[in-house]
Design a protein around this nucleic acid. Structure first.
Lengths: 347, 347
DNA sequence: TTGTTGACTGAGAACGTTCTCGGGATTGGC
DNA sequence: GCCAATCCCGAGAACGTTCTCAGTCAACAA
């Protein structure tokens, strides 16, 4: 067979051709190294000419820095996560990091995938929307890879991460819906045991209870459209159905909304107000026009990136959860608040 | 400062502790190597005990195989791509590959990100929904990294990839809509110059023209919800508006659908039939119930994986585009075909 | 001329694996 | 008791970089 045409060209090839040592050639690529300008120019010129690309693997071996950030993500089916993933990855690669993606499908072999990831010595692992098993967490810490949680945080006291102020956002939404006339609130929960479920639940129910209202509660299972549909069916078919519904996530809220309209023939928001959390793109679509709380994605990504960049100075082993405020998005599925005179009522 | 607590443990550490050579220890991890069973067990036991993880970087250096597959993806905002990405990544990691994600935001520095990716010597680069610049393509081939296109293919004759049979699917949709009574077809295009746009356009318009119908055509810009909205506005406000609308992508079709209903007050499908392409999850939601063509995602991923796995035998440098048939999904936004007696008419 | 500095360069180890090669036990046949 | 075969193991090179350390050479001062 013919010789491989595109054999990767190394620093050694450049050195041979230039009659220099590998050390000198290597120096040319490091701005802070002292090397004669003429030498550097000659090296860089030939490198460009030959299309030389430094080998990140070899570099990583000796520097100990791989530039790899692992990103673990569960259900990409919830549109919130692709959004977050796109932003996070773009930010990482702009900062010179490469993201290694691991999807943790419910039935899949997450632990094997994590071990595979860890073998590449990532500098950080960002956990998007996954509750890691304690075993996986232990594996990471044993490998010396710090974990960073995004949007959802575990119970562990030493966990670090950045999340939305779920409780505050849900409470604000409750206030808004109560002001709009809600008297019989209902809540559709998300995945039991997740921080997003718990905090949003506490925020909404806490505020309603403080206002003297009792909340009917219905588990929604995972954060899925179908989960929202099912929970809405159970909640709406009784005699004393709610007149306001808060769902722990937009994707569930959309399921509930469509079910209320198309299966129960309810008018939203006249018969039933509905709101979600996250502000996924579909929430703003005219077909839904869903009231919700927008997560501060850009800010969350920014904070995450700051953490990743500051790795060398990561003396802070202690846990720290950053909570950033969300933004109430009052749209067409909740009744406008009548007390504000200048507010646009009809939409 | 105290010594790093979790210093990564290497094969050398195991060898020292066991009083064996590194070669022997290394052999224990390769099933095909000949080594005494007792020795292997001893090694594996200690490895498990110490939590040893082989270093993929070092391994890759000498084997030349990194196990890394680069995945380039443009707009994750189109829900089709997260879906494809999740499936593809899951399949890759089940096969022992790690996916490195590169997002190619329109305004971003794609070329820099690609160079960054290439420095890790990926074995393959799967291009999801991106038209690479010729420069980027050249960079990849210079680095000896084969490209594989997914869902969208470039014009180059030596390109390899797997796509849906866009033309056939669009033609089938045209036939279905004509059978449902469409007489004034309209077409909303996607991103000009992409294969998905061109092939779907050709399939739909070709079939309509062959049937004696003339098609009003409207560019939709990128494959976005807003693009579908805008194009629909332009198309629907005239006097002789279409009675059937095919959009080059579901996400645009949903924009057009919502615009037709909420801005023009049209009944779908009575006044206007609408269909898309891709079958994204939202298409099946009751609020939209969009007729469309389902892409054979699982099969496409499977074919892609087969290509990636077969890398050593990749003597086939010649271009090859695999076209897999899609599936017509007749839903509520197109008029049912009356000629079929047993077909369920009302839905 | 000699020492001293400063600017630059080269040799070689190191990173953690895999792979090749050769050699030492152990066994079996005679 | 000898030879060959088999089985297992160790030494060392290799992969492509970076980093440390020692050197060379010119310029300059004494």
């Amino acid at each position: 067979m013919p010789p491989r045409p595109s054999q990767r060209i190394t620093i050694k090839d450049l050195a041979r051709e230039l009659g220099m040592s590998v050390a000198t050639v290597a120096r040319a690529f490091h701005p802070e190294a002292d090397i004669a300008v003429a030498t550097r120019e000659a090296v860089l010129r030939l490198a460009r000419e030959r299309g030389y690309q430094p080998d990140a693997l070899a570099r990583s071996m000796i520097t100990g820095r791989t530039g790899i950030v692992g990103v673990l993500v569960a259900d990409l089916h919830n549109p919130f996560y692709p959004q977050a993933l796109a932003l996070l990855t773009a930010a990482l690669q702009a900062a010179g990091f490469n993201t290694m993606l691991v999807v943790a499908e419910p039935g899949g072999t997450v632990d094997a995938a994590i071990r595979l990831l860890l073998s590449y010595r990532p500098e950080y692992a960002v956990v998007l929307a996954t509750d890691l098993t304690t075993e996986a967490t232990a594996t990471c810490s044993a490998a010396g890879v710090p974990l960073l949680f995004f949007n959802r945080v575990p119970d562990a006291p030493d966990a670090r991460g950045v999340v939305c102020d779920n409780q505050g956002g849900a409470a604000a939404l409750a206030a808004h819906m109560i002001a709009g006339g809600m008297r019989r609130p209902g809540f559709i929960g998300g995945l039991e045991g997740t921080s997003t479920h718990r905090e949003r639940r506490d925020g909404f129910i806490g505020h309603c209870t403080a206002g003297g209202l009792t909340v009917r509660e219905e588990p929604g299972g995972a954060f899925t459209y179908a989960g929202g549909q099912d929970a809405a069916r159970r909640l709406l078919r009784g005699p004393d159905r709610p007149d306001g519904l808060f769902c722990a996530g937009d994707i569930m809220a959309l399921g509930a909304l469509d079910t209320a309209r198309h299966e129960f023939g309810l008018r939203v928001p006249e018969d039933l107000a509905i709101a979600g959390f996250d502000d996924i793109p579909m929430a703003a679509w005219p077909a839904h026009d869903l009231s919700t709380v927008r997560q501060p994605l850009e800010a969350m990504v920014e904070k995450t990136l700051a953490w990743v960049r500051g790795r060398p100075a990561a003396g802070a082993e202690a846990g720290c959860i950053l909570r950033l405020p969300g933004q109430l998005m009052e749209r067409g599925t909740t009744r406008p608040v009548p007390s504000l005179p200048f507010k646009e009522i009809c939409r």
